[in-house]
Write a protein that binds this DNA or RNA. Structure first.
Length: 286
DNA sequence: AGGGCCCATCGCA
DNA sequence: TGCGATGGGCCCT
């Protein structure tokens, strides 16, 4: 029966499988479930399970799951320890500086922001991505929002509307599709064709988001370090709150911010998704 | 008034 | 040592 019901695995539901596997793992990690047990739990044979991870992350299940451990998180933090120290001056070209160049960002003026986005027309659309379905929000000046759909599109849309209550939202898949196509492929963010992002928020928030843009893929930092970087060494908690409100997830990589202990703490779009992103990036980086 | 924090302590193996 | 739990401080909306 098991055989008879074993279904074809397609790329479309790869993420769903990965997501379920991660969720199962984080529940049972204490008892060290075997790969076989995890595969069975998500309804796959070990062989299929292996294929899914290869296709989705470019990693074996074992390597992928290893990327989700506390040990690995700590290693990430160690590697990222001097992420900000080396490039305090703008002329210096460290790796973080490089990344920074590929995303151009401009902040909406405080005045514009205070109006809650009044007069702004925001196009939105829904698109598949490596982490489920995404909602993309764009202005003529660049990408303003990126979120995720878990079941109900209206929930995701409401999440975005609540950020700019006075803006007019217009569905425009054609316009947002271009952003969606590039948002998850950082190798396409080139100096001559940067991914344009519009950061909308308070002064403090924008400064935090700008700092996030300097964290390269595959690296990580902590809330406290960001606070120090923006000259507010004791504001780690406020940084957490600002990171939490990041409208352009993934592109502004708030998933690369961890607690000082290496704990993943929280994620607006679900901790499981944060884990998925961190594991996926390990595969992208080799 | 509360957070996607952080640090110092303390009590347990 | 290395954890988990607790308490107090801190700073932005």
């Amino acid at each position: 029966m098991m055989q008879a019901h074993t279904m074809d695995v397609t790329e479309d539901d790869d993420y769903a499988r990965v997501r379920d596997a991660i969720a199962f793992m984080s529940q049972k990690w204490r008892s060290h479930p075997s790969i076989e047990a995890i595969a069975a739990h998500v309804g796959l044979t070990p062989k299929q399970f292996h294929e899914v991870f290869r296709r989705w992350a470019g990693l074996s299940p074992k390597d992928f799951l290893a990327a989700l451990t506390l040990d690995h998180a700590r290693k990430l933090l160690q590697e990222g320890a001097n992420l900000f120290e080396t490039s305090l001056d703008l002329g210096l070209s460290g790796p973080s500086r490089l990344h920074d160049l590929f995303v151009t960002h401009e902040a909406l003026s405080p005045q514009e922001y205070r109006k809650g986005g009044a007069g702004l027309v925001l196009a939105y659309g829904f698109h598949p991505c490596p982490f489920g379905e995404a909602i993309v929000v764009a202005t003529p000046r660049g990408m303003a929002g990126l979120g995720f759909i878990d079941g109900d599109r209206n929930v995701g849309l409401a999440d975005m509307r609540a950020r700019w209550p006075a803006a007019r939202f217009v569905e425009d898949q054609a316009l947002t599709a271009a952003y969606a196509a590039r948002a998850f492929r950082p190798e396409l963010w080139q100096p001559e064709t940067p991914l344009r992002v519009v950061l909308i928020g308070t002064d403090f928030e924008v400064r935090v988001l700008e700092t996030l843009l300097r964290i390269p893929m595959g690296k990580a930092t902590t809330y406290g370090r960001i606070a120090a970087r923006i000259d507010r060494p004791k504001a780690a908690r406020a940084v957490g709150a600002a990171v939490c409100r990041n409208p352009v997830s993934f592109v502004v990589p708030c998933h690369r911010v961890l607690g000082q202990s290496g704990a993943l703490t929280g994620y607006h779009w679900g901790l499981t998704r944060k884990q998925a992103m961190l594991g996926w990036e390990v595969g992208q980086c080799r």
